[in-house]
Write a protein that binds this DNA or RNA. Structure first.
Lengths: 109, 109
DNA sequence: ACAGAATGCTACATATTCGGAAGCAAAAGA
DNA sequence: TCTTTTGCTTCCGAATATGTAGCATTCTGT
């Protein structure tokens, strides 16, 4: 009840959604998932694919994504999406389409 | 041609997608969009909805999202999604469903 | 077996971003 | 007029990201 009497918003953000938005809202997290969309990549190749992300951050993101069950490390293959992680693909594919309509960084008048 | 001769990945990440992933991968960006899903919110209400985000960061995210044409500020209404921004809704709705399957932060063995 | 390359990963210093508190000027409401 | 609410700013300590170098191990070719 922290929104007082005049609560108008019918839908409240769930805890799991807040968590997903938190983890996805960390630098490179979505990009890493996106780069793994079609095949497994080694750490170094993933680094290149992301355009030269620093290894320390990549390592952190990968550990987080692994702990969340989104990404898995396969001994002689590299990193790849888990079955659960692959369910994000259609979502990111839509973001890909959507991104083409992005404004070219116009100013706020 | 920065991936050498042995290029295997058929699909290259587009510049617009890289940009979208960049902006979406900033803290609170997706959350802000999500909180605006059903109605316009004033700056202060948006702050509450996000669970106490600091105004400096919220201001920065809102300016970025406005510059991208995702969010707009309506004088006596507050912030709301643009028509373009609303196209992100089905995407985030899927993320909402997906988030329920998130692992409870298990350790990496 | 051996040399060289590639692997995942770490350490460290620097730069950027975030977070939290206080507060401002302008507008709206009473 | 007085109070509240608005969008927004500044400051600064804490957290996160970046960049470079390099380690130990495993694969690869000879």
């Amino acid at each position: 009840m922290n929104r007082g009497v005049g609560m108008r918003r019918e839908e409240q953000t769930s805890a799991s959604m807040a968590r997903a938005l938190d983890y996805c809202g960390r630098r490179w997290a979505l990009r890493v998932i996106w780069e793994l969309r079609s095949e497994a990549l080694t750490f170094r190749r993933l680094q290149e694919a992301c355009g030269g992300i620093s290894p320390s951050v990549l390592q952190r993101r990968l550990n987080e994504l692994r702990a969340l069950g989104v990404v898995e490390l396969v001994p002689r293959l590299g990193y790849r999406l888990s079955v659960f992680g692959e369910r994000l693909f259609p979502l990111l594919a839509r973001l890909d389409e959507w991104s083409e309509g992005l404004a070219p960084e116009r100013d706020l008048q």
